[in-house]
């Protein structure tokens, strides 16, 4: 198991901060730089930091969910929020907004929830790809002969 005490301690400390940063980026995406896509990427960076520091198993435990399922759910959730406008007779994915903003969170509308779907989708996709690559068995040929490193 790759171990560097220093890296691990920093990584353990950074995880909550980064996840908070990701959610922060997501929620205020509409007015300031951020949004589902960037938030998702920042969150995946946090999880990949765990992967680098602790290895694939730890990274999987971060969100305790199957990332492939998360990606699929994200895309489904995003698509879902295109439908309400159909009920209103408008074309697919026209945005609908709640009249007054909810204090503290701001205006909620179908685009924001669509963004949330994108957020989950991006996390699922990026993290799952990283994990798949990390879990590939490595044909070791330099230092130790053939035993898988992780």
């Amino acid at each position: 198991m790759y171990d560097s005490i220093i890296l691990r301690s920093v990584a353990r400390l950074m995880l909550p901060i980064l996840l908070m940063l990701a959610v922060f980026m997501l929620l205020r995406g509409h007015n300031l730089p951020g949004g589902g896509f960037i938030g998702g990427l920042v969150a995946s960076c946090a999880i990949i930091l765990q992967l680098v520091a602790f290895g694939p198993e730890a990274a999987r435990r971060v969100l305790r969910v199957n990332y492939l399922g998360l990606a699929a759910f994200g895309v489904f959730f995003a698509a879902l929020w295109g439908l309400p406008s159909l009920i209103g007779g408008q074309p697919y994915m026209t945005s609908l907004w709640i009249p007054e903003p909810i204090p503290g969170v701001g205006k909620i509308g179908t685009p924001v929830l669509f963004d949330l779907g994108v957020f989950f989708g991006v996390i699922g996709v990026t993290t799952q790809i990283a994990l798949l690559l990390a879990e590939e068995r490595r044909p070791r040929e330099t230092h130790d002969a053939g035993t898988p490193a992780t």
Binding site: G29, H30, N31, L32, P33, K107, P111, F114
Partner: peptide
């Protein structure tokens, strides 16, 4: 309903 044009376009 958002100042951040880039994200409004995107979403």
């Amino acid at each position: 309903k958002g100042q951040n044009v880039v994200n409004v376009i995107l979403v």
